[in-house]
Design a protein around this nucleic acid. Structure first.
Lengths: 94, 94
DNA sequence: CCTGTACTTTACTGATCAGTTTATTAGCCT
DNA sequence: AGGCTAATAAACTGATCAGTAAAGTACAGG
């Protein structure tokens, strides 16, 4: 269970609301970078960078289809976060 | 449930392994700043700052007893994180 | 072979982070 | 009062972050 390094990256990735929104969007199915960018008043490179952060954290994989790079959510790190927080369930239930 | 701001701060606070270790220690009961610092090769001001980050995120409250400022864990934000991640349970179970 | 579309890379900026050392504040105890 | 201990404040540093604009890469299709 000693995945300290990974947890830090996952928490850091999720500490940004834009990135959490991207995760939320991807939970409903894969999407291209442009599609992911559309809800935000941000430049495309900014979104591209957010996706790269999510990818380095293992939360997203990017495919390649023609000139599109469809993104898919990988939920395993979310499970790790969930497991980490569940350790403290007894505390918040007290 | 619209606690976007708070979630960002909580995730950011938990993205540091020192701070997660402090949370973990506090889950076993309150502790002074010096006690919290003892496992780390860090200066006391560094730990003090980590505690302040946790406090701003609502994860810790600091009391006052003589010259000690005993820290206590507040688990509510952890519950919010747990609830957020649980949204995606279906994804990682698929 | 062009042109448009999708996306990334590069180079830059201002802000925040994690840590340090040094100096202060505050309370206890002779 | 003076000294010890606990902790915070201040000032600084180097690194990372979130964003931009502009240039570059890659593919599809007439």
């Amino acid at each position: 269970m000693l995945e300290e390094e990974g947890l830090s990256e996952t928490f850091a990735a999720l500490s940004n609301p834009t990135r959490r929104a991207i995760v939320s969007r991807l939970a409903r199915g894969e999407a291209t970078v442009k599609e992911l960018a559309s809800p935000f008043a941000l430049s495309l490179p900014a979104i591209s960078k957010h996706i790269m952060v999510l990818e380095r954290a293992g939360l997203v994989v990017q495919g390649q289809r023609a000139q599109y790079r469809p993104c898919t959510l990988v939920a395993a790190p979310l499970q790790a976060v969930s497991a980490w927080t569940e350790q403290y369930r007894a505390v918040w239930e007290a």
